[in-house]
Amino acid sequence: PGLLEPTSTLVRVMKSASTLGIAIEGGANTRQPLPRIVTIQRGGSAHNCGQLKVGQVILEVNGLSLRGHEHRDAARIIAEAFKNKEKDYVDFLVTDFN
C-alpha cells in the first residue's frame, strides 16, 4: 500500500490530546474523492504532532485505504482509529498531491 503514490508520506499521530483535531472534506462520489484536511485545530493531537498540514489528502488510515469510501464512512474510519484503545497512535498515509 502506498507504493504507487510516490509523493505520499506516512505520518504517525500520537494520541497526545483528547481530540484528533482535524476537519476533513471529501469522500467517494463528491468533487473531492479522497478526504482532504481543511482545518487543524490548535491543541489537538494532529496539531501537537506537527506533521499534518491543511490541504493534504488522506490516502490510508492505519493501513486501510479510504478510496471508495463515502464521506461519512471515511470520517467514521478515522474516528474509530482515534478511539481504538489498542493503539496510542494513528498512522496516516497522506499526500500533498491532490
Binding site: 483535531g21 476537519a23 476533513i24 472534506e25 469522500g27 463528491t30 468533487r31 473531492q32 464521506h71 461519512r72
Partner: peptide, 15 residues
C-alpha cells in the same frame, strides 16, 4: 462539461 463538475461538494466533518 467535465463529469467531475457535476459531482456534489462534500460536507465537512470535525474529528
Amino acid at each position: 462539461r467535465e463529469k467531475r463538475l457535476t459531482l456534489p461538494p462534500s460536507e465537512i466533518t470535525l474529528l
